[in-house]
């Protein structure tokens, strides 16, 4: 019975929750980056996805990595695990960067130079974090079979 529930939950997860989550997590950073460029090019703010939504997507991603019944895709394609993690971290970084851009374009709390500085700094810190992370925890397959 427990197995059936697990199977149905996994099926629901892989049909309804996971595909959308992954689509947004993979393409989100790119879309947010184009939004960021638009903000500085046009001087008009852009609403990002919002960190609340990103947190929710991150939670779904975390579930897929934590529970064995849901991590089928990583057993098939192990490289997806660090790839999604990388996209997720980039997404948070890009959204923060866009928030700083909007502080200038929408709310005029900070100047344009300060906003550009903060945006670039955020992206650089995020990038440095990823470099450090994969230096500390390199991606390599386990030869199990």
């Amino acid at each position: 019975m427990k197995k059936i529930i697990k199977f149905v939950w996994a099926l629901f997860f892989y049909i309804f929750l996971f595909p959308v989550t992954i689509l947004v997590i993979v393409f989100g950073p790119l879309m947010t980056f184009t939004d960021l460029l638009d903000v500085y090019k046009l001087g008009a703010p852009r609403l990002g996805m919002g960190l609340g939504v990103i947190a929710f997507l991150g939670f779904i991603l975390f579930l897929s990595m934590k529970y064995h019944s849901l991590s089928w895709i990583y057993r098939k394609f192990p490289v997806l695990l660090p790839f999604f993690q990388m996209c997720f971290v980039s997404f948070i970084v890009m959204d923060l960067s866009l928030t700083f851009a909007n502080l200038w374009a929408d709310r005029m709390i900070i100047g344009k130079t300060a906003a550009i500085g903060l945006s670039v700094l955020t992206i650089l810190v995020g990038r440095a974090f990823l470099s450090y992370w994969y230096y500390k925890y390199p991606i390599s397959y386990k030869m199990v079979r």
Binding site: L51, G52, A55, M65, V79, T99, W133, S140, K142
Partner: peptide, 28 residues
């Protein structure tokens, strides 16, 4: 068994990223 080396660490970073996003979302 772990699928890749450091799987737990990668997963942990997603978890803490989620927590960070929630905290930042509330703060912002």
């Amino acid at each position: 068994p772990e699928v890749i080396y450091h799987e737990h660490s990668h997963r942990k970073s997603v978890f803490f990223g989620t927590i960070l996003a929630v905290v930042l979302a509330i703060g912002l």
